[in-house]
């Protein structure tokens, strides 16, 4: 296969990347703003897909499918929130429990079908791999709307309270903010956005699979970190909140571009998760190693040695 197939597939690649970027925006809320490692997203991404597929199969519009997926995700986030704040379960464990429970719940939603096809021939879908350019425009507009809402919301009094909760809970309490409520609410909106992305992803690929959320958290983190590294390199001190959000989505596109290239190079699809893990590890390690090499003991010793000589 020549490079033409890769280029011809580019709008589709970008669209899928933006869908992952939207998911990463949701993960950004918990991971970056709330400082909460929420692993429930692997489950809620698939929940979004499952709910959307069932709504569409029942003959209702894709609009309702997206709304109900959003609500289902919000409920999933609420469960993690309750497990953590009311029942005192540590953040990672609370997320894992929800994720595990959602696997069964997702199968119930799809009436025990591990894979629910929603063909664009039979149903009217929001986005489809068949119409790549349309899909690209649609998801791009949606991503921009979500970024705009997030930018506004986290600048409001409520949004500031959520951000404060993430950076310093003790101070936040002293300012009269209910820290547990803020954490739970952050989880709710985060998982709602993730499920919304799951609903888009299922329609784009023409099916909702019970395993579609596997590795969602890592892909989300990959997008966030890739975006952050590039944004820091390009804008340095000029970086602000809206740029950060834009680059989260850009990170998603870039991530999926890597995947597309690797697939195009005929690497076995089963190795994809391994490949993703390696990408994330590299992007996590590079900033750390760079800062370490800037302030290393060996270099300090060398400098000191020269001065003394």
């Amino acid at each position: 296969m020549g490079i033409e197939t890769l280029i011809a597939g580019m709008p589709g690649t970008a669209a899928q990347g933006i869908i992952y970027g939207i998911m990463a925006l949701g993960i950004f809320i918990t991971f970056k703003l709330l400082n909460f490692a929420d692993l429930s997203v692997d489950g809620s991404f698939a929940t979004g897909g499952a709910v959307a597929a069932m709504v569409i199969i029942s003959g209702r519009s894709w609009m309702l499918a997206l709304v109900l997926a959003f609500v289902a995700g919000a409920l999933a986030g609420l469960i993690t929130g309750v497990l953590h704040t009311v029942l005192g379960i540590p953040d990672i464990l609370a997320g894992i429990l929800t994720q595990l429970a959602l696997y069964s719940i997702n199968l119930r939603i799809t009436r025990n079908q591990p894979n629910t096809p929603i063909s664009v021939d039979k149903y009217n879908l929001a986005v489809s791999l068949r119409y790549k350019t349309d899909a690209l425009v649609t998801v791009l507009v949606m991503a921009i709307i979500i970024i705009a809402i997030m930018y506004w919301y986290f600048g409001t009094e409520m949004g500031s309270a959520i951000r404060a909760t993430g950076t310093n809970p003790a101070m936040t309490k002293a300012q009269g903010i209910n820290v547990n409520l803020m954490k739970a609410f952050g989880l709710v909106i985060s998982n709602a956005i993730v499920a919304f992305a799951g609903a888009l992803s299922a329609q784009f690929n023409g099916n909702a699979d019970v395993n579609m959320g596997r590795g969602a958290i890592v892909i989300g983190l990959a997008s966030i970190i890739i975006g952050e590294v590039i944004c820091n390199t390009l804008f340095k001190k000029k970086r602000n909140f809206i740029l950060t959000l834009l680059f989260v989505v850009f990170g998603g596109i870039l991530y999926y571009l890597f995947i597309a290239i690797v697939l195009w190079l005929k690497m076995p699809a089963n190795d994809m998760k391994l490949f993703t893990a390696i990408i994330v590890a590299i992007f996590l390690a590079v900033p750390y190693l760079k800062s370490k090499s800037n302030s290393s003991f060996r270099k300090a010793a060398k400098r000191g040695g020269k001065e003394n000589a």
């Binding site: 919301y153 600048g155 409001t156 009094e157 500031s160 300012q175 009269g176 903010i177």
Partner: peptide, 11 residues
């Protein structure tokens, strides 16, 4: 805004 209701006005 300590002790006040935090809504959707600018932070």
């Amino acid at each position: 805004r300590r002790g006040k209701l935090r809504g959707l006005r600018w932070g």
